[in-house]
Design a protein around this nucleic acid. Structure first.
Ligand SMILES: [Zn+2]
Ligand SMILES: [Zn+2]
Ligand SMILES: [Zn+2]
Ligand SMILES: [Zn+2]
Lengths: 166, 166
DNA sequence: AAAGTGATGTTATATTGTTACATTATACCT
DNA sequence: AGGTATAATGTAACAATATAACATCACTTT
């Protein structure tokens, strides 16, 4: 189990998360014969600055000026996000119009997210078990699902603890 | 079980769905002492024109001109949608930026939707069973969910049948 | 009539995302 | 190295979705 899966809720060495994600990305792109260019790497690194979702225009604002000394246009960040999503490095959270790094990229997988409404921490769950438990329900409907998409708002363990008695 | 729960996938008397929804809405608003005004009723009726999600600007385009002979502004439709959502008569599908009528309004409940990527039919499932099956997973994470939000793309039974051998 | 409340109208603006086309970088072959 | 194809980026305009602020209207209560 990867570092960020285990203790993301706790205080932790987040550089570890970032560098782990970047390393995994480099490796994955090498394997697939695609380029993790400067822009793409920059966007991925920005996305990984926290375990909270980030908006596209937030990312855009944090990107450095290009060599012409100008701010990049929206297309820039959307293209990078498209690439990263295509290769499973980043997910989009539809309920928030925002993006977050995938802690176990590579395999095509479901998107099951626990979103803390207090601290905005996002925890991605492996969809396999959810999919298993849901399978009977779905087949009972005669429905053939492509991929699960779940964004569950609530309160994370950390914030429950902090908020006790409040 | 309501009409639209049972046979929405099949060809059916959709007027039955529409009038059922309008009647339920009127009753619910009476009970709660809130007004189902003309605008709100018009928007709800438009939403119920099909079992497919509808965009806010689509609705706007279909609203009749107001008494000044002008097209209503976006605020109009968003205000109506806000009201309808607040009272559980309509859901928003975040993955589509679109809205759909709730087939069993009134109770506050989860939003679990099966969305056919072929015909765009949307089937809402009661969240109770899903919630039950997911509970162990969520409590294992120490996460306290507010309400389930699931939008599952796939192929509906009807389209699977139609597409056989294609 | 006066005041209060909820609903609507009106105008402007914010936020998020896309299209189209030009230019530059990189890979690949001869 | 040169030539060609492909991938990536730049640039500008625009589309789609949603909200904010403030004025007006309708209805009720006093
Ligand atoms: Zn971390
Ligand atoms: Zn993931
Ligand atoms: Zn519902
Ligand atoms: Zn279908």
């Amino acid at each position: 189990m990867a570092h960020q899966d285990a203790i993301a809720y706790q205080s932790h060495d987040h550089h570890h998360c970032i560098e782990g994600a970047m390393k995994a990305a480099r490796q994955l792109c090498r394997q697939r014969g695609v380029q993790l260019t400067g822009q793409r790497e920059a966007v991925l690194r920005l996305v990984w600055q926290s375990h909270r979702p980030v908006g596209a225009y937030d990312l855009l604002g944090q990107l450095p000026d290009n060599r012409n000394g100008r701010k990049p246009a929206p297309t820039t960040v959307y293209r990078a996000l498209d690439f990263l999503r295509e290769h499973g490095l980043v997910h989009r959270l539809d309920s928030l119009n925002a993006y977050i790094g995938c802690p176990h990229p590579g395999q095509q997988h479901d998107g099951v997210f626990l979103i803390c409404r207090h601290c905005r921490h996002v925890q991605e769950l492996p969809g396999e078990r959810v999919r298993q438990t849901l399978k009977p329900l779905l087949t009972a409907q005669g429905f053939s699902p492509d991929a699960l998409l779940m964004e569950i708002p609530g309160v994370c363990p950390r914030c429950q603890q902090d908020g006790e008695g409040a």
